[in-house]
Computed example of a mutant assay.
Amino acid sequence: MKTWKFLPIMAIGVCMAMTSCSEDSKKEDVSPNPFAGFNTPDSGTATDDELKAAVATYVDDVVIPTYEDMYNKVTALNTAVQKLSTSSSDNDVANAADAWVAARKPWEKSEAFLYGPADLNKLDPSLDSWPLDKGGIDAILQSGNWEDAVGGDVNDDDDAPADAPQNLRGFHTAEYLLFEDGEAKKITDLDANKIGYLKAVVGRMSKDTELLLKGWTEGKNLENGAYKDAMKAPNGTYSISNIKQSVAMILNSDNGAEGIANEVGATKIGDPVDKWNSGDKEGGVLAVESWYSWNSLDDYTDNIYSIRNAYYGSLDGTVASASLCSIMKKVNPTLNDMVVKQIQETITAINDIPHPFRNNLGATTEVKNAQNQCVFLCSGLALVRAKLAGE
């Protein structure tokens, strides 16, 4: 999810995406952070060959298959949406809504690797900016002029207007058009303009998803070739000069594994809860990502699964023999066991928040626990990065 506003540091200790969570946790009360003061000595070291094998597994068995899955499911969504032009069936809208949910999963499971093509081609904001500009979307529905919104370039300026193109397309515009109160709309809710706009939005999503996949596999729309090659055989392209820098990219605190752990706690959970607790109840609900579909908590847990997949080197919860997890088991088995446990603790804590999130922003105990678990996961991933990438 790409947001377009300044995000305050959470009072309970969730740190900002551009900072080290382990450093911030020393300043904030996030006790009992299990990683605070971690000092168990290493029992081994990671060789460059081991790191290269782990990065290759990560690229070939996690990143590329995730984007292939997303491409296939966005293609299926596009097919389902195209059918609405000639449909009179509520079932067809329900099928399109189901296809949206299915396409959403691999996207959310890719948010631990929003660097590379997702960043260089501004595909994260193009696909997933939040909050969307509901007023702008409604105006477009009245005018029928959605060409600029769907085809326009991302405006990533700090002072970008609310109706910048990225806020008028992507997953959440499609969600707004397909869902109401967690359910698929009826075919009678969708007039010709809504269907036309929806088709254009999903068509753009298809193009963006193809760029994500082919940016990694072929270097499509990139200047220095396939991003997979830069990660697996670093030679200075895309500012990756050695295999430790590839590992650092995987775990980085901006748009890598640590970054999404922080974003889930500080932004996706934290923003709406902050508004709610300040007395802005309506603003709190409106700040919940994916609240039209009630998919929010699934989004957040899938984000943590994206971290697990990146760390394990697999998509099914098994630990690949060539993976960061397997290397850490040799380098520092205590830390590895703690990180593995923390990944699951974070997923469990998010799932403990009552569903749907939009209706339970006042579930203080569960919310604070989920946010703290995200902080702890940030801390553990920062320690792993320091040991494997020397940062």
Rank of each mutant, 00 (worst) to 15 (best):
S129N: 05
S129H: 06
W130V: 01
L132C: 02
K134H: 00
G135H: 04
G135L: 10
G136Q: 08
I137N: 02
I137K: 08
I137S: 01
I137T: 14
L141K: 09
Q142N: 10
S143K: 11
G144D: 04
E147H: 13
D148S: 15
A149H: 10
G152L: 07
G152H: 10
D153K: 11
V154M: 05
V154E: 05
V154C: 07
D156A: 15
D157H: 10
A160E: 14
A160R: 15
A162W: 05
D163Q: 15
A164D: 03
F171N: 02
H172V: 03
H172N: 12
T173W: 02
A174H: 08
E175Y: 08
E175C: 09
Y176I: 09
Y176E: 04
L177P: 06
L178C: 04
L178T: 04
L178M: 04
F179P: 02
D181P: 06
E183K: 15
E183P: 00
K185T: 08
K185C: 06
K186Y: 06
K186A: 12
K186T: 05
I187F: 10
I187V: 13
I187A: 09
I187R: 15
D189C: 09
D191A: 05
D191L: 03
A192Q: 12
N193T: 14
G196Y: 06
G196T: 09
K199E: 10
A200N: 00
